[in-house]
Design a protein around this nucleic acid. Structure first.
Lengths: 229, 229
DNA sequence: ATCCCAAAAACTTTCGAAAATTATGTTGCT
DNA sequence: AGCAACATAATTTTCGAAAGTTTTTGGGAT
């Protein structure tokens, strides 16, 4: 693996996890120290992330971590619902036994990790399996473009969920585990309408939860309207 | 504008227009001569285009123009229909007079250019106005994510249409101008169902036309199944 | 004090060469 | 002939310095 690829993964990781705060300037000298490499691989990574909307770029004024806003979250989630319900229908239509088995396995692994979520780094392992589960649901849709957009949107929305996950004090008023179970069941039953409805609800509840947390000022990481500097 | 941005635009332009053939290796030494700049700005542009799926990249083996295939076209168009019908509905719901006027103006400019399409570079001007028209239709949808995906998919599918446009000998069995007119009319009438149906038809016919042309071997640029090397 | 302009500093962007890796070609052996 | 081992060439990747741009600083005039 080249340094540029490592830089891409490290930066993407740190931006999504919020270790590099939204709006923060990404100065090459700083990044060079932080990641222990020269400018070239870093600039390449930044350009890729810019194309993915995870960083903003301004000519001759460098890069910044892309800001967060409630409007963008709503937009991203509504686009996710559009893409993923369509992909889920296709998957349900086209998926074979292998696809179904993948969902069962991903759900099982996800639920195992829920119990260990309190462990150090348990949240990160949970988050990884969460992605694997949602990817497994759509994986038989047969559309590389839709899958690519799914990956982009997942990363974009993950940035908003992380502060909630990290803030363990927040009361979790949802049984997310049950939602995942019901979603998997409807999908494996090939009940497309029900599965899509559950998926849509699942996402709308997430937005609601984040929106409420912002209103109650419980999340300083995600600014209500505009981005932090 | 920086050199890297110029490189990005020039490469994107040449790939979409087919001047850099699908599958062709993009060697830095060649590109450096072709565009008259060093490696750094070129690599940055290539990384951006890689994130946009217009070029493929393999570690330590450089970049290539992304291949074309009928399957990818069908996938891209079906995704376009999904995104754009949704965006069109939102635009019809949210668009104000300014939005409507923009459509009228873009359609008018597009039709003016149809007459001049035979002139040198007339096709490129036509193509530019075609993009502006379709963008104008969706521009009030209020979703930056959907607009970004629209731009991506438009570029991806434009690569398939270019060979058809350039091959003037092909009989044009469609009245594309009428299709655009009807689409604009339904949109301005705020008849979302009709507008979306027309938009869907419009795209499906384009796929059909390209598919037929490939079957009849009239387009050597677009390989039938797999990509050219 | 405030504003304006020049000088300095900070930072981004680009180049050219060095380092690392892959591809090519040649030789010698079976 | 076929094939491995090795050397050579071609190419990508990375670094460090130079060039160019923006931002900050400081002094002097109003």
């Amino acid at each position: 693996m080249t340094l540029a690829e490592k830089a891409y993964e490290a930066l993407r990781h740190d931006i999504i996890r919020g270790e590099l705060a939204p709006g923060r300037p990404l100065r090459l000298a700083d990044l060079s120290k932080r990641y222990g490499m020269g400018f070239s691989p870093l600039r390449e990574a930044l350009n890729r992330l810019h194309a993915e909307l995870l960083v903003t770029a301004e000519s001759l004024r460098g890069f910044r971590v892309a800001p967060l806003s409630l409007e963008e979250l709503k937009d991203a989630v509504s686009t996710r619902i559009l893409i993923e319900t369509d992909a889920l229908r296709s998957s349900i239509e086209l998926g074979d036994d292998n696809w179904a088995a993948g969902i069962v396995s991903a759900l099982y692994a996800l639920n195992l990790q829920v119990a260990r979520a309190k462990a150090p780094d348990g949240i990160w392992a949970l988050e990884a399996r969460h992605l694997l589960f949602h990817r497994a649901l759509l994986s038989a849709c047969g559309s590389p473009w839709k899958m690519a957009f799914f990956e982009r949107l997942y990363a974009a929305t993950e940035r908003y969920r992380i502060p909630v996950l990290l803030n363990a004090s927040l009361p979790v008023s949802r049984d997310v585990q049950a939602e995942h179970g019901a979603l998997a069941e409807a999908t494996l039953d090939r009940d497309a309408d029900k599965a899509c409805a559950l998926l849509t609800e699942h996402y709308l509840r997430t937005v609601e939860g984040i929106s409420n947390a912002i209103d109650r000022n419980e999340l300083t990481t995600v600014p209500a309207k505009t981005a932090a500097l």
